[in-house]
Design a binder for these strands. Structure first.
Length: 577
RNA sequence: CGGGCUGUAGCGCAGGGGGAGCGCGCCUCGUUCGGGACGAGGAGGCCGUCAGUUCAAAUCUGACCAGCCCGACCA
């Protein structure tokens, strides 16, 4: 392609709405432009990269026996009513009516449609397993779109769904997709980790996210410094830290006045005690029933763990009114001692680690010292409901400590079970002639987000540094003096040779000054720049610059194509560390 | 959905009751030509929309719309 004819425009200044590097660079390099909040045009540069990511996905999935389909972006409400999600999905679902007044939505995901599609065709166990995927635009009316393609409302997603005869083979399908994802992201040239993930409303306990490591990531992940354990903080397990507390060291309960001191911070400084010695007592409302939650003062409640532990549908912090009604005091003075047996009490494992806690006294302006498990309160459940944190012991190996990283979730694999197949009657006859619901899995990859994450991870102050496998163009040829015939001829010859060699090549044939072209080339991030300047060409040479290392080398014009081609071919298959 | 901010040329911004401006970008000419050149000339805006106040509104008031930030939420 000739840059002089290309539909693109670079900007020197950073648009004010772009906050993170990938967004700024995609904007500045002319890859994307915003049409509306969270909705973008993909210009040629961006689309080329996206197509490459899609090609990698297709190759890895097709070679593992998956088949591509394409489902509609617009979906009838009836299917969503059947699965029960028409009411559950909330405002994230963009709904509208057609001319006849029937309800529709823009598909935010395709479990319903695929389940419907499969059930029309599935008769016998002999047909399975199936694994169907598509690459589709999805729409989710995000509360807060941000960071460009990182969290848009309309976005390109690869979603796949597996259908198996039983749990065992469904898990095989799951791990096969896990393997495919590992191959895909390696080939895209990003540094990533597969981490245990929370399963949200769908339930089940088998799900992993593929997280690209980047400081701007929205997700917090924890990984062990000595084994392969890694999990999203939403999911990361904490373990009990102590043995049996020494009951002989229990001291007598003592009520203290703490006028106006409500938060752990306030009370701890008022009493001169560490936050870790406090028993934080929170009242939640789980499916309209109050639950008292106890946790060490230096820990935070992980609501997704709590929700899973309680098996609740809707979980939220109780209103002040409900707290008063349940505990007889306002938030700030709530504690576990003397709680009505009507109230369900859940304690985090951290509560077992210490003795002589300080907690609220269930009386305004008063706290109690020396509160002890079993002697003074008996939780109905003691279970891991805390957020894990950096420095915690690894739940999987002995001696390992957890480290914290930020990540961008680019993919998730999910074992679904038979929730949808049961709800929507997607079943087959097994070997005994019995009707069985299919065991399902679903698997997503954010295609645009993967591209953004790659930029987030691979850039410097001058611009993007594309990994070769997903670079829009692999090489740019830069003739520096268009009025120098030898330069132009050398550039055109090399450009043609690259094209013949199957290298994706751009030639910057614009009549611009050298510095201008260099800046643009660095910004757009071509992995290789072949620079043809008057002096070098006169000496029979070209200069080759590698974007990532910044390394430049002068070489004979005749060698350029072979050297650069070999360098590119070595890297096309990706394989980040 | 709560709290906050912003809408003036393609981008970044200044102005703040009576002439619509600056930088970058764009067009023409000349000089320049290896890290976003310089000079001269030029094109480009219903100052987000609608209403109100006023002799007069980009400017004041109100409503609405849009975008952004913080929070809550999230496959």
């Amino acid at each position: 392609m000739r840059l002089s004819q290309s539909f693109y425009k670079t900007l020197k200044e950073i648009p004010k709405d772009a906050r993170i590097p990938s967004h700024q660079l995609m904007f500045r390099s002319g890859m994307i432009q915003q049409l509306s909040s969270g909705i973008y045009n993909y210009l040629p540069l961006a689309l080329r990269s996206i197509r490459k990511i899609e090609k990698i996905i297709r190759e890895e999935l097709d070679s593992r026996g998956c088949e591509e389909v394409l489902m509609p972006a617009v979906q009838p409400a009836s299917l969503w009513q059947e699965s029960g999600r028409w009411d559950l999905y909330g405002d994230l679902l963009l709904r509208f009516k057609d001319r006849k007044g029937n309800d529709y939505c823009m598909g935010p995901t395709h479990e319903e449609v695929i389940t419907d599609m499969v059930r029309r065709n599935l008769k016998s166990w002999k047909q399975l397993p199936w694994n169907l995927y598509q690459i589709q635009g999805k729409f989710r009316d995000e509360f807060r779109p941000r960071f460009g393609l990182m969290r848009g409302r309309e976005f390109i997603m690869k979603d796949a769904y597996s259908f198996d005869v039983d749990v065992e083979s469904a898990k095989k399908s799951y791990w096969k997709m896990h393997e495919a994802y590992t191959a895909i992201f390696s080939r895209c040239g990003v540094r990533f980790r597969a981490v245990d993930a929370a399963t949200g409303e769908i339930g089940g306990d088998m799900s992993q996210e593929f997280q690209v490591l980047a400081s701007s990531g929205e997700d917090l992940i924890l990984s062990c410094d000595s084994c392969n354990y890694a999990a999203n903080i939403e999911k990361a397990v904490t373990t009990s830290t102590g043995g049996t507390p020494d009951e002989t060291a229990f001291k007598a309960l003592e009520t203290v006045d703490t006028p106006g001191q409500k938060t752990i911070e306030e009370v701890s400084s008022f009493l001169g005690a560490e936050a870790s010695g406090f028993l934080k007592s929170l009242v939640y409302e789980s499916d309209s029933k109050p639950v008292l939650v106890l946790i060490a003062g230096d820990r935070d409640v992980n609501e997704s763990k709590l929700q899973a532990a309680l098996g609740s549908g809707v979980l939220r912090m109780a209103s002040n009114t409900l707290v008063e009604k349940t505990m007889g005091t306002s938030p700030g003075y709530v504690g576990p001692v003397g709680v009505s047996s009507e109230v369900f009490v859940v304690a985090d494992l951290s509560v077992t680690r210490g003795i002589n806690w300080i907690s609220g006294a269930n009386e305004k302006d008063k706290h109690i010292r020396n509160v002890n498990l079993r002697r003074d309160f008996n939780p109905d459940k003691v279970i891991d409901i805390a957020f894990a944190a950096a420095g915690d012991s690894c739940p999987k190996c002995s001696g390992g400590k957890l480290e914290e990283h930020r990540g961008i979730e680019v993919g998730q694999v999910f074992y679904l079970g038979n929730k949808y197949s049961k709800m929507m009657d997607c079943s087959f006859l097994d070997e005994e002639g019995e009707s069985q619901p299919a065991e399902m899995g679903c698997y997503g990859i954010g295609v645009g987000r993967t591209m953004a994450a790659a930029i987030e991870q691979n850039h410097d102050e001058n611009g993007i540094i594309w990994p070769v496998p997903i670079a829009p163009w692999e090489v740019v040829v830069l003739p520096l003096q268009l009025n120098d015939e030898a330069v132009v001829e050398a550039a055109e010859t090399i450009y043609e040779s690259f094209r013949m060699a199957g290298i994706d090549t751009m030639i910057d044939d614009r009549n611009e000054r050298a510095g201008f072209k260099f800046k643009d080339a660095d910004l757009i991030g071509y992995p290789v720049q072949v620079v043809l300047g008057g002096r070098s060409v006169a000496a029979g040479n070209a200069e080759v610059k590698f974007r990532e290392s910044g390394e430049k080398s002068e070489m004979p014009l005749d060698d350029v194509v072979v050297v650069v081609r070999d360098w590119i071919l070595e890297r096309r298959q990706g394989g980040a560390e």
